[in-house]
Design a protein around this nucleic acid. Structure first.
Lengths: 211, 211
DNA sequence: TGATTATGCGGAACGTTGTTCCGTTTTGTC
DNA sequence: GACAAAACGGAACAACGTTCCGCATAATCA
């Protein structure tokens, strides 16, 4: 797969110290909106009314539309925000735990992320151009994050070395996509099983086939 | 897979000669609505406004909602109508052509059906209970239709005998799902390729593996 | 054929949605 | 503190799905 993709995300949150600084209240409201949207999407689904999100964020709908010109832009921003949070968890876990444990914990973290994105999956395929860049962003942020953990675990002899990060990512996604309802326990068990497979492969010669 | 499923579809179109006959104008309007909805969905997608469908059918929205209490019910009815048309084409083709040719033509017919159902695929997974029975209906009508053609072609030595109807059905569906845009030519070529695979298997011993 | 009645029809009207607009408020700068 | 630019709030608009009810009409019996 190709890593030399254009970055489809910028200019939303971080330092825009060119020309004019972002006003403090604007920055605060963007954060409030992202938090509120995340909470509302989790409870009422991605089809929840924008007004509900604006109320929960304590802003008017005009403010919402100032920062996210279309509803889908807000959905996409929340998605990117979550992808970022998941990717950023990787180095934190790597610093806090051993290589194998960090990998295991991140896979569960990623599984939780996927499990809460049921409504988004169909939105992604709705043909709305606001979602066009999301798959690439997903891949660009998450594949390197997992690859780093995977390589470290392999170097420490705590995971097999012949697993592709992208394939593992989609495998876990498919695994968690099946379970319905709010209960994450079955997905957790399946992911744990998969991780044990990684661990098992590290014990032998390393060229054992996965399937 | 199990064939002893409840029939999820009845009481919509055919003879309701119990108690009271269906009024002629009502029957006519239902047909007009199904025709209009099919045309509108094809041009504007399944998200087209109900008013547009009512206008095209030459009826008021009240009439539409009398026959289809919810928008999704109309979508589901159109889907079932199309599934019926596709399934009913099988015996017609079988009577008109030789076994191999009938199978080939039906597969193309089915591919065209799938190719025009892009918007429906995401609607199916939207969680709306109006769509719950559709996958079962799809399977119940189409699997036997294909199996009959497949068996006849195998008996005539024009197709291999070791292919499961359901698997072939989903394979063609996946094949046609990939292509985007209105051009059906690539899907047709892929399906033709698949059919040649069936034919090829018939020449040898018959136990050659497909993949 | 004409009267009767259940059945069906039409489209105005309602509630909810995404989105726009503009007068007012707030923020950063001199 | 004064000023301009930026951002805010929420009423208002348009489009949608759905409901409602007065009116039309097809089937039935005389």
């Amino acid at each position: 797969m190709n890593d030399q993709l254009e970055d489809p995300c910028d200019g939303l949150e971080p330092q825009g110290r060119v020309d004019r600084p972002v006003r403090a209240d604007a920055q605060r409201n963007v954060n409030s909106l992202l938090d509120a949207a995340l909470a509302v999407f989790a409870t009422s689904g991605v089809d929840a009314p924008v007004r509900e999100i604006a109320v929960k964020a304590g802003v008017g709908v005009g403010t919402l539309y100032r920062h996210f010109p279309q509803r889908a832009d807000l959905v996409a921003a929340v998605f990117r925000h979550e992808v970022d949070a998941c990717a950023d968890a990787a180095p934190v876990l790597a610093a806090e735990y051993g290589a194998g444990e960090a990998l295991a914990r991140w896979m569960q973290r990623y599984a939780d992320f996927i499990a809460t994105k049921r409504g988004l999956a169909s939105a992604l395929h709705s043909g709305n151009p606001a979602f066009d860049s999301l798959p690439a962003y997903f891949q660009k942020r998450l594949v390197p994050a997992l690859r780093t953990l995977l390589d470290a675990a392999a170097a420490a002899g705590e995971a097999r070395a012949d697993v592709d990060a992208y394939e593992l990512l989609t495998a876990v996604a498919n695994l968690c996509m099946q379970v319905d309802g709010g209960c994450p326990a079955p997905a957790h068990r399946m992911v744990a099983l998969l991780f044990d497979g990684l661990r098992y492969g590290a014990m032998g010669s390393g060229d054992r086939s996965i399937d």
